[in-house]
Design a protein around this nucleic acid. Structure first.
Lengths: 336, 336
DNA sequence: TAAAAGTACGAAAACGATTAAGTAAATGAT
DNA sequence: ATCATTTACTTAATCGTTTTCGTACTTTTA
């Protein structure tokens, strides 16, 4: 491989001059700079990242923590899109992305040890059990961090606007004439709390009378559980006219139960999902859902992280909230 | 950060001794080795990867090329699962994975330049336009490579068993009594060729009489196109009793058209998908499809690549074919 | 008992870049 | 004309490892 030394020899200058010329130092004349650049290009020079890193402690590599208990993170379209957004933004800013793990060969190590070992310039945390002690340790390790869909008290975070998401859905459903609205929400997490809080606020503001049986809990993507919840709702003496699900997946589970009872959607009961995955669109009927702007979330996470890496701030904590938009399908009946 | 030098100082030995002790060299006594190891652990020593790489040219980092024109690779569940498989296998063998790109900051560079710059020990190519000249250049660059679902003439490849996949589906459908079987296949690629060839072989062996109108072409995941194809098939004077689609996504598109004509599935017409994505299972009716063992494909790709990295072979070309299995849903009618 | 072989460690040179500090020549100020 | 500044380079140290080649000491062999 061709190194600065080779270029220096060819150009009859010192390696220092080559390095400076290539890195835009001001104490190199335009003439030699151009000469060196031309020679470097001609020789197909590429800097040896390991050497650069060793000297500067910069890797231009950002780690991304993307694991959950079920290891389904990557296969979840929402997170896949976030990842895609991170990837393209980071790459356009000159960084590459590497997955973080907590085992290296046979041995278990901590996430933060891994990051230290690989010398990531920064880390994005998404789709992980945020209360895992290892994650907490990583967050406190001092490395620049951006979290997605979770707020720690000393990191930058990029959040989907869950408050507005639920509000928009509620207002849409309300505008369609629905008053008896059930909400099957996800398990406890920052995201869920925001959504549930927003739901209750809407209930209050819209002066709805929602009986406690209308509120149920169901793990995200757990279609089996969604099925059970839906059955319970349908069996109520006073069933809802519309059900909000934690996500599109569970909504489909619910729809299947409803259909199996020979009820029609949206004629007999309305259904609303969340996420806006592609399947929601081609489902029959298309599901009305809240499409999160996951690509933008990924992009913002990457750009804020890189900004933090390149010029560290005194004030660290910031929260970027990304709005989604209601995707109107045909699963909500207009009662007017 | 604690370095070998620090350990050496604490242990009153030379850095050479520390390095050797930690790397299992035989010319270190058990006694000092244990002493050094204990001290290293106590001090929280982690090797500086940049320095290791600079000296040994090994990064324990494998690059993965995972792009396609539409940038939808990651959001495709099949590829997401492959990636998941690669990730866990690689990590368990002590490697981490990084995405390959062809732009670094503002500048465009080639894939192989990127790999050289980052010094990946090896590369896995999946979900990419395999005839892209840049990809060809990468394949010929000399770096250890494993390709997924595509065969080059000098790389190891991991393929889904498309021949057996189509055969299994055809035999299943045949066993259910179908004789008029239409096949909407994907666009030209190694994968498609294998499937189409297998289809025709089955037609011959099962002595089916398939009119040319039954064979159509549709880009993978292109539901709009699948819709059109399905309409044409339904409009035939002699329509098929069963339609094979390129993938589950297009199958769902087809199903929607069929349903919109007030035909029932599987009573009036049968439908078969491919891939076995999770939507296929929760769809109503569940779609009979071929579930590719994508996790295993990813794992094999990673382990063969690492084997190739760690002990280069003289004979390079190898092809590993991974079988899938028919996932029986309720979209194929039993005609008996 | 002297030579050979084996054992356990150390000195020092790499790997390929960056960068502080130094220097010589050219230019500017007084 | 003298000193100060600026310009355009070079020298050399350094980052944290690995690894070759010594070396000193101990043990075995003949």
């Amino acid at each position: 491989m061709v190194s600065v030394k080779d270029i220096a020899a060819q150009c009859k200058v010192s390696v220092a001059t080559v390095s400076k010329a290539l890195n835009g130092y001001s104490d190199i004349s335009e003439e030699t700079r151009n000469m060196i650049k031309a020679k470097a290009a001609e020789m197909g020079y590429l800097p040896n990242m390991a050497a650069v890193t060793l000297k500067t402690s910069r890797t231009y590599n950002i780690g991304i923590l993307f694991e959950d208990a079920s290891n389904s993170g990557l296969t979840h379209e929402y997170f896949a899109r976030v990842l895609q957004g991170i990837k393209s933004q980071a790459e356009s800013m000159g960084y590459c992305i590497t997955f973080i793990t907590n085992r290296i060969g046979g041995k278990k190590i901590t996430y933060s040890e891994y990051c230290r070992n690989r010398q990531f310039d920064g880390v994005i945390i998404a789709c992980v059990e945020f209360n895992d002690p290892q994650v907490v340790e990583l967050v406190n390790s001092g490395i620049p961090i951006v979290t997605i869909d979770h707020v720690f008290n000393n990191t930058i975070s990029v959040m989907s606007d869950n408050v507005k998401g639920i509000r928009d859905l509620m207002e849409h459903v309300y505008a369609m004439g629905h008053r008896k609205i059930a909400y099957i929400h996800g398990y406890d997490s920052s995201v869920t709390r925001d959504r549930v809080t927003s739901f209750y606020r809407c209930v209050e503001r819209l002066e709805l009378d929602i009986p406690p049986e209308y509120i149920m809990e169901c793990k995200y993507r757990d279609t089996a559980r969604a099925t059970k919840c839906t059955k319970k709702l349908l069996d109520l003496k006073n069933p809802p006219t519309c059900i909000l699900y934690p996500d599109d997946f569970t909504a489909i589970g619910g729809i299947n139960v409803i259909k199996s009872r020979n009820l029609k959607i949206p004629e007999d009961i309305s259904v609303v999902g969340y996420d806006g995955i592609s399947y929601a669109l081609i489902h029959e009927p298309p599901i009305t859902t809240l499409q999160q702007d996951s690509d933008r979330m990924g992009r913002e996470a990457a750009s804020h992280l890189i900004e933090l890496i390149e010029r560290p701030k005194t004030t660290l904590k910031e929260k970027y909230v990304i709005e989604g938009s209601v995707l109107i399908g045909n699963s909500v009946k207009n009662l007017h």
